[in-house]
Every structure is written in C-alpha cells, then in structure tokens.
Design a protein around this nucleic acid. Sequence first.
DNA 1: GATTGTCGAGACTCAGAGTCTCGTCAAGGG
DNA 2: CCCTTGACGAGACTCTGAGTCTCGACAATC
Lengths: 219, 219
Amino acid sequence: MTTRPDSTTEEPDIGAGTDADAAGRPHTGRRRNEQVRRAILDAVMRLLARADGSPVTVDTIAKEAGVGKQTIYRWWPSKGAVFLDALTDHAVTVVPDADTGTLAHDLEIVIGASYTGAVAPQTAPVLTTLVREAAHDPHLAAMMRDFTAVRRAALHAVLERARARGELAEDADVELMVDQVYGVLWYRLLVGHAPLDETVANRLAATLTAGNAPKESTT
Amino acid sequence: MTTRPDSTTEEPDIGAGTDADAAGRPHTGRRRNEQVRRAILDAVMRLLARADGSPVTVDTIAKEAGVGKQTIYRWWPSKGAVFLDALTDHAVTVVPDADTGTLAHDLEIVIGASYTGAVAPQTAPVLTTLVREAAHDPHLAAMMRDFTAVRRAALHAVLERARARGELAEDADVELMVDQVYGVLWYRLLVGHAPLDETVANRLAATLTAGNAPKESTT
DNA sequence: GATTGTCGAGACTCAGAGTCTCGTCAAGGG
DNA sequence: CCCTTGACGAGACTCTGAGTCTCGACAATC
C-alpha cells in the first residue's frame, strides 16, 4: 500500500514539501522531482491541445511525458485531477474584479474576460474534455465546481455592488443573472453552434443591465 | 453478421415494419415482439428513475427487462440511443408554441413548460444521464441536438414573432436569448445548485423582455 | 416442414482506469 | 561509506462496462 505524501483525498498540493513534511518528520529518502511534475502537466496540455479528437488516456499521458503511470497516480488521485491541475496551472488565475463605476462596463469586462479566456485555443479543448471527464467522475465534478466558483463569485460581487449603487432593481435575481452568463458560456462552449467573443459578451452585458434596471428609470 | 432490419446508422424506427419491409420483400420469419421493446424502454426509465446513483449499464437494463443483451443491440445502435428513445417515448413531445400576443406571456409559457418539464421527477435523471452519456458518444450527442432543436425552434419562433410585432429591438440577438434560456436550464439541471421552476421562468421571461425591448419605449 | 429471422443466455473481445510489483536511482543519516 | 527511505520507469495485472459472436429455442410464413 503506497502512502501518498499528503493529498490522499483532495488536492495534490505539490511543491510545498520541498524540505520537510507538514509533520515533524524531516522527509528522508529521494525528493520529489519537480521536472517530472512539469513534464506531466505539459504533456497533458500538449495532448489536449491536439485538434484531432485523439483520446487522452493515462497511458498516453505517461508515454508523452516519458513517465511511469504510477508516478502520475502517486501525486494525483485520478486522471481528471491531473487535467484540472494542468488547467489551473496554465490558466490565468487572475479573475478581473472590475470596478469601473458602471454596471454595464463592469459586466463587459468580467464577461468578456471569461468568454475570451474560455475559447482561447489553449484552454477550450481542456475545458470541454474536463467536462466530459467530470460527467462520470464525481470527484472531478466537485473540483470543477470549486474552479468555477471563483469566477462566479467575481461576477456576483460586481452585481451586488451595482445593486448597492442602485443600478439594479431591488428584487433582481443576481444568482439567475450569474447563471445566464455562465449558462451561455458552457452551452456555447460545448455545443459550439455560436461564437463566444467580446461582441456577444457586450451584448449580454447590455441586455442584462437593461433587463434588471430598477423601476421607473430610463438609463 | 447480423443484418439490422433497417436502422443501421440512425434511428431505430421500430413498429413500422409490422407487415412488410420498406423494400418489396414481405419480411418472412418471426416478427418483432413489441412487448420486448416496451419492456426494454420501461426498464430504462425504471432504472434511471432510481434515486440512488446506481450505474445503468446495458447488462442491468437487459437483466431488469428480462431480455438478452443482443436483443437490445439488434434494435439500437448504442446504449445512449436506447436512453434517448426511452426519453422521447416517455416525454410529452408536444412543444407549446404559445401565441398569446404578448412576448412576456409567451415566454412565460414556453420557458415555464421547458423548465418544469425538464425537472419532472421522471425526466430529470434521464436528461442528466443522457448528457453524461453524450459526453463520450458523438452519435448520441447528435441525436440530443436533434431532440433539443425542436424546443429551441419553438422559442425562436416566439421571439421572431415578437420582433415582427415590434416588441423586440431590431438588433436584438434572438440566438443569444435562446441560449440564455437553455443555458440556464442545462446549467441548473446539471449542477443543481438552484431551482428551475415557474418562478425562475417568469423572472427570466420578464428580464429578457425588458432587456431586449426596442429603444425609446417604456413598456 | 423448410426457411427466415427473433429471442434469451452467456461467453467473448476490447479499451481504459486504477493497482501492484520490481529493479533502479537519488537523497539523507549513521 | 553504506544503509534506509522514498521517487521513478516499466510493465504486468485487475476490474468494469460497451459492444460482438454464437448457440439453441421458437415463431411466422411459404
């Protein structure tokens, strides 16, 4: 029975135990090779970026990275976890918390960033594959919810701020507005029948603003 | 090599060849047993409706229906196809093409019907499982697109009619509005973090109407 | 009663996720 | 210096589930 260093149940949390374990024991034996971690993560992105829908299996990842399969499972609990780690490692984790003073403009920035970030050639295939994997991996599904929660929270903040400024109706359903934005994002990302660019983002920002404006207001 | 009667590539199309094949040959031999078809479809719905997330495999379907596995594959090209057939067979195929004269009201009807229909206890688990299967079955994914296209078209018609009446801005993005409605539907259906009822439907109908109203108009 | 095709049953192939073991290699500690 | 600990590559292995193949029984029609 292999004793996984720390992340038995949840996140990998690699790179932290470079010197000593979280516990007192000073971690004897050979150290974790950071280059191997990088090789695996890079291999995942490389395989996922391949336009042809060639299946990205654990074996192909191991082969592409020049790594043993066990090395992967030593640090990540499942294939999906590797995918998600590769994505978060690669993606710009900076979520723009726009605060320009106008709801419409704030929305344009946040929605625009989300949309263009999602359809970027390096991330789009990763996201779709991730959803595919999450479909039959509850563990990964939970991790994806955490991943998306950050961006949802940013949008939520923008909307609540606007409500405080009086730019939103008192009874506006902020949760529904957030779902409209990300519902459209995932829907179009997965089905791919319509674009997901700044034009769409701006249009959505405008109609969302107009549709949830306070009563008896022209702007 | 078994010769599938007709549906080698696409839809099952069962029950049609009761007397003679589409071709001239009068179909000798033992006939298709309609009760077996029913038993399979019912078994799928029964298994899918089970609240516990017990995996619905082809073997369990065959066992539940008291049927041989080959009998399933004789009439459906894949497991997903059986699921979809069970759904369309069960679901009310009548899509309400509301035409009350007001956009807001029309939307309430169409969106409300879609939302409540989707979360009905008998259909919700079927839909989510279907999407899960479609995630790694392109053939099923195509069938699902056909399935959803009908409802999308109904909503599209309502919106275009409203535009003709002058209830929508000339440059309103009808496609985006449709995606907002169904984006929210699938998003909430799959993540399950927020309700999908008439209240939400009415709220969405109202904000969609207000957000896409023609310029210089109060209503 | 011969032919054609359905049915239930179950063995089978194939793919992919995850596990186990082994021989090797790097970093300490004594 | 060498011994222990744990990382690593390699590859065999188990397990699950989709889809195929074959078989014997049976029903309909000629």
